[in-house]
Simulated scan of single mutants.
Amino acid sequence: MEPEMLDRLAIRALVENWAVWRDAGDWDRFATCWHADGYMMATWCQAPAAEFIAASKAGWAKGVSILHFLGGHSADVAGTRAIAQTKMTISQRAEVHGVLVDVVCTGRFYDFLEKREGRWGVVLRQPIYEKDRMDPVDPAARLALDPALLARFPEGYRHLAYLQTQIGYAVKTDMPGLKGPAVEALYARGGAWLAGGPHG
């Protein structure tokens, strides 16, 4: 098999392992998905990989329920660097104003990856948040959201952010969505990364 195809298979396996091991609470193996200088940009946590893992473990212990599902995948590979985009959904369950709800957010994982000493790892993961929705787990339940709080967040993840604020997280309010300056800047950073520059 050609070396580039082997790299592409390794990258896809890395992305899938990230989701499976993180959601299963398999923290030791989850840590192997990252390089030592890896960084995570999530709505609720922007931190070096080690701190993100610690925060995820703490949330897991408190009953925070966040799951990831993966879809289509594309990777641009340039030598020992790559940008991978993977369709995903983030599903989170929690109480909002006393009503148990599920939020499903659809988007892409946009990953800055590098092969070091023969191993691909995540250097930076920046999700792109495209659209989301919130539904009561009990379809007969009635839920009224605060429109002012909902409007504080970008359209692509406003319901996810709303839920996360209700359980105590400070949510970043300028993450990239499907369109606009933030995602265009991200694409430019991805191009620079493939050309040998910093990820920004």
Rank of each mutant, 00 (worst) to 15 (best):
P3Q: 10
E4P: 04
E4F: 00
D7A: 15
D7P: 07
L9G: 14
L9Y: 04
V15Y: 01
W21L: 15
A24I: 00
A24M: 08
G25T: 04
G25W: 01
R29E: 14
R29W: 05
R29P: 08
C33F: 00
W34Q: 06
A36G: 06
A42F: 02
A47S: 11
I53P: 09
A54P: 12
K57A: 15
A58P: 02
A58Q: 13
G59E: 04
A61L: 03
K62P: 02
V64R: 06
V64C: 06
S65A: 12
L67V: 11
L70A: 09
G72W: 01
H73E: 12
V77F: 00
A78L: 00
A84L: 04
M88D: 04
S91G: 04
S91K: 06
R93Q: 11
H97I: 06
D102E: 14
V103C: 13
F109M: 11
Y110Q: 06
E114M: 03
K115S: 09
V122Y: 08
L124F: 03
Q126N: 11
D132E: 09
P139F: 06
A141T: 11
L150Q: 13
R152M: 15
R152E: 15
R152L: 15
R152G: 13
E155M: 02
G156H: 01
Y157K: 03
L160M: 13
A161W: 02
L163I: 08
Q164H: 09
Q166V: 03
G168W: 01
A170N: 11
V171N: 11
K172T: 14
T173I: 05
P181K: 07
V183P: 03
V183E: 02
E184M: 07
R189E: 12
G197V: 10
P198V: 05
